[in-house]
Design a protein around this nucleic acid. Structure first.
Ligand SMILES: Nc1ncnc2c1ncn2[C@@H]1O[C@H](COP(=O)(O)OP(=O)(O)OP(=O)(O)O)[C@@H](O)[C@H]1O
Length: 620
DNA sequence: CAACGTTTTGTTTTT
DNA sequence: CAAAACGTTG
């Protein structure tokens, strides 16, 4: 069944009980090995639903599970696969009651969390001008780092946000209020999904029950997990019981430091799991020798590298191409030409990818591709969930799902004509959206629908319309999520036309949203899925027609993790782009940029083009 | 005082 | 290009 595997891969697949650490270089077949191991475990009698497979994205999880299925095991559908966050969400809905979490909680994404911070910043009087208090996104970022890295607030601020040092006490005050506010409103943010999972796993009352759910736990891309996630893993594999846990990673490919990921997790694995077996995969099955040599040369310059020698196994002599271009226009032209040349040689567009550091780096190229009728799908940097009108629609759904969700009320009410922040606040107070603990008063939504409310005269009409829309969604208890969105759309349409420009394309986004909703089984499920696995490519939104067409892949390097293409084009390989000028604060950041380039280069199988413009008209 | 329109600023990567 | 800050109108 696994005869193609090399001896080290075989050993990893066949490993029996006990902790296993697989240190695997780029293209050494770790994804394949992990999938084979899942298949093998099932073959050897482990029930699929007793296997937990943690990956860095839902997409990676699907890919891995389907690979395992192709290896001959049929029953992989029942494997618990997903990101730490998605699995946390699932476990907490099942077992959260032990921590006082009711299963009806809703999930905030990081922008929602920032909005809560903003509300609190106003309430606590930190928004006065003249005072330079951190902005909402900064607050959210600081908070997230303290939680995920398990570090003290003052240390985080000192290290990563030194300009906020004067306001540490205010920040602490906001954070305390933030935590309390989330509890009152039955909402969890991304960090809470991990935090509460850890609490569940390490609590004497529930820990062992949770650990016993899974016979085997496997974690992919372990170099990109953070301290909190390592704690969860340890909690799920207590020293007392059998410690069947497999982690796979490559410290040279650690690119999520900005999310508090740390290679310490790999390095310290043998200490946390003392009798761990360690297997190294050092044969690269992906790239031709010249491509691998170039990649190795890039990473060799890293002073913090852990020794690994990655040896090529494939033939090939074509050298990678480094092309200096006059400017961005010439770069786009060069890429288009190279792509088409390879296409002529028989390499499908789909087998080629253009990689870049930041989503906007491909703007110019996208125009050029469109002009030449070269179809493409772009991964990463999609601002769909960030778009105001999408948030508006989702906030309506979230009010229906969780009437205590303050930020959703605040956003939706301000859509109404004549209703600004002050009136919205007043109305929310009247509805008692914010209430002390679990008071048994009528839901704010019921009150809004049934009781007369005091609003500015100008806003009365808007309130009636909102009432109608929300009421209709609720009346028809059986109305599926897509139907609810359709009803809400009739309310939102005039609002969007009045409030935003480019209304037409925004309205199309709402139809898109409705399409996504039509696959969901319930409103709650839809909302959670969307926040835990947001659309990540333009293809996710364009729908299935793309499937049999051929199209070029454009992707951020982050979103290209774990993937491979016959030909890879890396653009904007210039100072200020890679490395990004946003990430030159300290050596660690710069080293991460180096690894980012390494990850980009190692995606290529047969052809590699690296280009950079020598001149930018707008400062980069 | 509150809503709304205009100017300025600041711009990565993702669960 | 979107959100914050500012200034004007209701
Ligand atoms: N034993 C093998 N024999 C032949 N080909 C192999 C073998 N193992 C892996 N491969 C091939 O090598 C390529 C890389 O494998 P895979 O994607 O699993 O690597 P990876 O370690 O996950 O890479 P990365 O860490 O860079 O994401 C795949 O095309 C896979 O089919």
């Amino acid at each position: 069944m696994f005869e193609d595997l090399n001896p080290e891969q075989q050993a990893a697949v066949n490993h029996g009980e006990g902790p296993l650490l697989i240190v695997a270089g780029a293209g050494s077949g770790k994804t394949m090995t992990l999938a084979a191991r899942v298949a093998s475990l099932i073959e050897r009698g482990t029930r699929p639903e007793r296997i937990l497979l943690l990956t860095f994205s839902r997409r990676a999880s699907r890919e891995m599970v389907s690979r395992a299925a192709r290896l001959g095991t049929s029953d992989t559908g029942r494997v618990w696969g997903g990101t730490f966050h998605a699995v946390g969400n699932r476990l907490l809905r099942l077992h959260g009651l032990a921590l006082g979490l009711t299963p009806d909680f809703t999930v905030l994404d990081q922008a929602d969390g920032a909005d809560v911070m903003n509300l609190l910043r106003d309430e606590h009087g930190y928004s006065a001008r003249a005072r330079r208090f951190p902005r909402k996104d900064t607050l959210a970022a600081i908070y997230s780092r303290t939680v995920n890295a398990g570090e003290r607030l003052t240390d985080v601020v000192k290290r990563h946000y030194p300009w906020c040092l004067d306001e540490v006490e205010g920040i602490r005050e906001i954070f305390r209020a933030y935590t309390e506010r989330k509890r009152q409103q039955h909402v969890l943010d991304y960090d809470d999904l991990l935090l509460f999972w850890k609490a569940l796993a390490t609590s004497p009352a529930t820990g062992s029950q949770l650990a016993q759910m899974f016979e085997h736990i496997l974690v992919d891309e372990y170099q990109d997990t953070n301290a909190l996630q390592a704690d969860i893993l340890e909690g799920m594999r207590p020293a007392a019981g059998p410690r069947n846990v497999t982690v796979v990673g490559d410290d040279a490919q650690s690119i999520y430091g900005f999310r508090a990921a740390t290679v310490k997790n790999i390095l310290e694995f043998p200490e946390r799991f003392p009798d761990a077996t360690m297997i190294k995969l050092e044969r690269n099955y992906r790239s031709t020798p010249p491509i691998l040599a170039a990649s190795n040369a890039v990473i060799a310059l890293s002073p913090q590298r852990h020794e690994k020698t990655l040896r090529p196994t494939r033939p090939g002599e074509t050298l990678p191409i480094l092309r200096a271009c006059l400017d961005e226009a010439e770069q786009s032209d060069a890429v288009c030409r190279a792509v088409l040349e390879h296409r002529e040689e028989g390499i499908l567009l789909k087998a080629q990818a253009v990689l870049f550091r930041a989503a906007y780096h491909s703007d110019h190229l996208e125009v050029e591709l469109a002009r030449r009728n070269i179809p493409f799908v772009k991964y990463g940097g999609l601002k769909f969930m960030e778009a105001a009108h999408v948030k508006d629609a989702l906030s309506c759904l979230r009010i229906l799902e969780n009437p205590l969700d303050e930020v959703s009320w605040f956003r939706v009410l301000q859509l109404l004509d004549g209703m600004g922040p002050a009136s919205a606040r007043r109305l929310m107070e009247e509805l008692e959206v914010r209430r002390e603990d679990d008071a048994h008063a009528a839901s704010p939504l019921a009150r809004f629908l049934d009781e007369p409310v005091a609003v500015p005269k100008g806003a009365a009409e808007g309130v009636r319309e909102l009432r109608g829309a929300l009421g209709n969604c609720l009346d028809a208890d059986v109305l599926p999520p897509a139907g609810q969105l359709a009803r809400l759309r009739t309310f939102l349409e005039p609002v969007i036309v009045r409030k935003y420009e480019a209304a037409a394309s925004r309205l199309r986004d709402l139809e898109q949203l409705e399409l996504l909703a039509s696959e969901a089984s319930s409103r709650g499920q839809f909302l959670a899925d969307l926040t835990l696995d947001p659309p990540s490519s333009t293809g996710d939104l364009a729908g299935p027609p793309h499937l049999d067409e051929d199209y070029l892949i454009l992707s951020t390097i982050h979103s290209a993790k774990g993937l491979e293409w016959d030909v890879v084009h890396v653009i904007h390989a210039a100072d200020g782009m890679i490395p990004s000028d946003m990430s030159t604060g300290d050596d660690d950041e710069i080293e991460e940029e180096r690894r980012l380039l390494y990850v980009a280069l190692t995606r290529a199988r047969d052809g590699l083009h690296v280009t950079y413009p020598q001149r930018y008209y707008r400062r980069p």
